[in-house]
Design a protein around this nucleic acid. Structure first.
Lengths: 139, 139
DNA sequence: ATAATTGCAAAAGCTTTGCATGGCC
DNA sequence: GGCCATGCAAAGCTTTTGCAATTAT
């Protein structure tokens, strides 16, 4: 995702293009692994040391509201942000804070078919995500 | 879950039986719907107004560490606690804070069979949970 | 008896807010 | 020009921590 694409995305969503927004977006792509706000702020220190903490949170909220980012739930209660917008699942490491995306269209089809014929009583499903917990193999 | 059962559970896990621990356990069962620490503290006000906030958090940590409770992730970054220990999934309401348990053995078997024959590269699965987001039907 | 738990209050995160300043369209 | 976004610092909320006093075993 290059700068031009980021600018396009902002414009498409009727968001003003500011250097802060572009920089924050770039930082998230550079980090590439579900960064926390804290991670993003550290990353910004490198090239944009003057972006303030409050702005980072405000921009993240804006981007989430415009669905350019997704918030990822964590057990620790710290918010993390994910720029991958297509439906996908997450692999959570039991031992570290690592979180990876997991995409599997075949599996999604199985799930959808299952819930199509096994509707949940009193509940209208909008989206299904897996939290897959375990360990990354190091070899 | 009666008081006697709670006491048993604590003993079985080599935890000392204190009035605070029992009361907190009872509060969680009384609330019955993935309460936050805040919810638990309010509930305790009714019958045990002298249990301090710090103690509640410490007890919750202890119970989670002993696997008598499970932490539930939320998008808002607030921790919630669930006394249901069997493997189960969660239904998240898009519009309110409501979270319900969803158990489905048939579905669990399908998932397990799927990942048995479609192992994830470099990842050892320990547990799979669904986050099902949508709306509760009011009728 | 002794080791663990509680209570209290202070502090530590992380995140939000308000308002004046500055920048985008 | 007008409105929106930013910066800064202060405040908010939830959660954690330290230590002395108390309680369970």
């Amino acid at each position: 995702m290059g700068t031009a694409e980021i600018i396009d995305k902002l414009k498409q969503n009727n968001l003003r293009v500011t250097p802060q927004r572009v920089a924050i977006f770039e930082a998230i792509y550079a980090l590439n692994n579900h960064p926390t706000a804290e991670n993003i702020i550290s990353q910004l220190q490198k090239n944009h040391p003057y972006i303030s903490t409050g702005t980072v949170y405000k921009v993240l909220d804006t981007l989430v509201a415009s669905k350019l980012l997704i918030k990822v739930k964590t057990e620790k209660g710290i918010l993390r942000y994910d720029p991958v917008l297509s439906t996908h699942h997450h692999l959570y490491c039991l031992e570290t804070d690592r979180i990876e995306d997991y995409e599997d269209d075949e599996f999604d089809e199985i799930i959808n078919a299952y819930f199509e014929s096994n509707k949940i009583k009193n509940f209208q499903i909008k989206e299904i995500k897996l939290q897959i917990t375990g360990n990354f193999k190091t070899n």
